[in-house]
Amino acid sequence: MRAKIELAIVLLALGIFFSNCSTTRFIEPLEKDEIAVGINAGGPVIGLGGNIIPIPLSSIYVGYGYKENLTLYGGLHTTSLLFNNLQFDVGARKNIFEGYSIYPSMSVAGSINGILGFREFKPRIFPEINVNAYWKYGRWRSYTGAQTWFDFYKNFQPTYGFGGFFVPAIVLGQDVKIGDWRVGLEYKRLAFNVPTENSVVNYITFGGIGAQGIYVSCSKSFGYKKLKENESN
């Protein structure tokens, strides 16, 4: 019977579309007037029918270097779109510390995650903050960070689910710049304040707490080079 029930959890596994469903947006601010467009895929890792898979979430995103040390960005969640939902995120990032020697640079970001389902008008907004530390060496960049979503609805409506006001995650990532392209891999330790041992979704985790996510991303920068050329002329 248990094996049969496992199929049903696909339905619920997809319920986590909406939390931690993308890579960290722009680890460091873009240059002024630089534009970058990217895609990412991946999600929390679950056990399903004897297999271990990351939930195939995806999004496209764009960032713009609005000012020196201030990047504005937005993302559209394409997997969610296939299920008749408009899910997006918009935010801004800036550096708060320039690294030197072994000390990493640090950046912060604030963003809004919005979800509007077309089956039922019940929009949801989840604010998010994010702090990253990153090290650059040649074309490579390593980073770690902490982030949390805020679930204000926990206080405003009857709720029976697990979880609380904070939905935090710790991030480890690595990316590489190849010409105008940047390719990255990211690991997230998700919702480590939430017991998931008895969760309907069979999260692959440890200690019966939270979940783990694996994500890949790819982005391309343009505009910045042209800007540099114009400046040099």
Binding site: G15, F17, F83, G117, G161, G163, V167
Partner: peptide, 20 residues
């Protein structure tokens, strides 16, 4: 309990099952 409770249990967020 409810399909929404299943969605909340699965996500840790106050989201409704009608999203999917």
């Amino acid at each position: 309990g409810s399909i929404d409770a299943m969605a909340e249990d699965g996500s840790g967020l106050s989201i409704q099952a009608s999203l999917f």
